[in-house]
Structure formats: C-alpha cells, structure tokens
Design a protein around this nucleic acid. Structure first.
Lengths: 156, 156
DNA sequence: AAAACATATTAGAATGGTTCTAAATTAGAA
DNA sequence: TTCTAATTTAGAACCATTCTAATATGTTTT
C-alpha cells in the first residue's frame, strides 16, 4: 500500500500544523482527522460519527462539529454545503474540484493538472474586479453520475 | 435606465420559457421572478419575502420555496447553499461566478469574459475523467470583501 | 361565459442538521 | 503531580426547509 505511507505522513504533518497554531490534540481530534484523511467519501457529520463509533462510542456530535471547525480554520478541511441543508467535509490535501450527482448526491473528486492555474486565474480576476482578499476557491460541477445514468436509462 | 428594458425582456422571456414547459403563471410566481430579476443581492427566502411583502402580504414561505424549485428546474435560477444551513438564490441570466465574504456573508458577482471557456474546460475534464452527464458549473471564491477588510483593519 | 378539474397557495405542524449550554473531564504547562 | 484553561459531553434550543390537508385559482372544455 503506497497510500498508507502518504496518509500517515499527512496525519503527522497535519497534527504538527495544528499544534503549531497552539491547538490541543485530543484522541477525538486525532481520530476524526485520521478518518477524514483515510476516507475520501466527503462524509457528513453523521457518517463520520458512524465511521468511528467503534473507536469512540460516546463521541458527541458537538465535538465533531467543533473539531471540523478547527480543521477548517487550520485549512486542512473544506466544507461542502449541499441543498438539503447538510454539510459534507473533504480533507483537502491535493487541490481538486468536485462533481456532484443531482440524483444520488454523490460527490466525486476531479483532479486536473491545470486546475491550480485555472483557480489562480479566477482568483486574480476576483481580486482585480472586486477587491476581495482571497482565501480559497471551490469549483462544483453538477450532473448525473454514471451509475445514476444507468438507473435512469440515460446512458447511451 | 438601460437596465429596465433588459430586465423587462428577461421577465417576458423567462415567463415564456416557463409557460412553454407547461407551468402555470400565477401572480405569486410572476412577482417572485420579477424580484429575482431586479435584485442582484442573492437573497434568501426570508429576504425575498420581506422584499415583496407590500405586493403579497399573505405570501406563504412554502410558495416561495415551491416557486424557486420550479425556477431552478427551468434553469432560470441557481441555488447557493451556505455554511449556515441557509440557501441563497441567484437569477442566472448571464454566466458568472461568485466571491463570498467569510466575514459578512455577502455574495458578489464576478463577470469574466473568459469564464464560459474556463467552465467548459472544467466540464470537459469532468466528463472525460468521471463520466458524469454535466448540467452546470459553479465557482465560488472565498475571501474578505473590501468593506470587511476595513472593518477588520486588514486593508493596506 | 360557466363548469370542471388539476394545479397552486396557505397556515401551521413536523423535520432534521447545526448550534448552544452548563457541568464534567482532560491536555499540557509549571 | 498540580493546576488551569481548553475540551468534551448530553441534551435542549434553534431555525431553515419540507410536509400536510384544506382552500383557492388558472386553464381547458363545453
């Protein structure tokens, strides 16, 4: 497993980064962070809670929300609010954007070599035209995923 | 006012488009649509309700939600879910993207000549890499707006 | 123009994700 | 080890959105 080493490295680096900002590391925080680094399913709070319930059976939802807020503040995680009022989360190690299925809600990562340049171009335009101080860019493509195309008989 | 003619045209065209899809035009629907065409403030449902309360004092929130759903289905309006659990709406006449202020929540339109090409490039990559059937693209740049930069003493 | 019917509107209740609160616990510094 | 501020917890509160069932209305047909 090549991923394992990478993910361990990411965990170590992320924890270092958090500590450097004067934030305490608790077992809850480490386990939530590890879950996000090792699960690229853009989980909701509920999904995270279910995913680590064996390790932390008494974990409060408030703790998950607090931890995520901390991770967002430390620029390790981004929030993906959806139309159903919920929010899903994404450990943002490598820059990428998202395709979201309008039928089943699945979120798919899209990695594109040119993406960082494109994001920079959009950010520059925003800076120039609106005077914003930019902190981040999010691209979301809506559509129907291959599985749902089949289900809905939309496939060729 | 050059805008006035444009906005009237947009209203007429939008209503025609809706009717063509077999949807009834009611006073509520027309007033909500007109409000969205003439107010580029990315309003929430509450803001819309307040904005047209003089014309429709007894308007139910359910009607606003229903109307917006219809307008989204007819591709006249896009939804902008935010982190606070609310959704804001945008009449999407001319393609553009958004800058959102992390401090005050304001959403600012950014118009860029190259944007349609950039969106197409991102959509092509998504089609090729993920097999999605694409229906739309959303770009959101996070940052601090000029006013909040001043408030927060972040200005140069 | 009137009747008929499917569709839309309304008020208020229900839902459910997120935030708040106050008490108990704990990480990390001294 | 002791201390203290930060964190966690359980559950209540909040609030945007959705649902429901009764009422009203826009279109089509006669």
């Amino acid at each position: 497993m090549d991923n394992l080493k990478t993910e361990n490295t990411q965990l170590t680096h992320s924890i270092k980064k958090i500590k450097a900002n004067g934030v305490r590391i608790t077992p809850q925080r480490e386990i939530i962070l590890e879950y996000l680094i090792t699960h690229h399913i853009h989980p909701s709070v509920k999904t995270i809670q279910a995913g680590i319930s064996s390790k932390l059976p008494n974990l409060s939802t408030a703790t998950i929300y607090n931890t995520i807020k901390m991770l967002v503040d430390n620029e390790l995680v981004i929030e993906l609010p959806n139309k159903d009022g919920g929010i899903r989360y994404d450990y943002f190690g490598v820059p990428h954007f998202h395709a979201i299925c309008e039928n089943c809600g699945k979120i798919t990562d899209v990695f594109l070599d040119e993406y960082p340049q494109i994001a920079e171009e959009l950010e520059k335009a925003t800076r120039d035209k609106s005077g914003y101080l930019i902190t981040g860019t999010k691209v979301e493509i809506s559509g129907i995923c291959p599985e749902c195309q089949k289900k809905l008989h939309l496939d060729k």
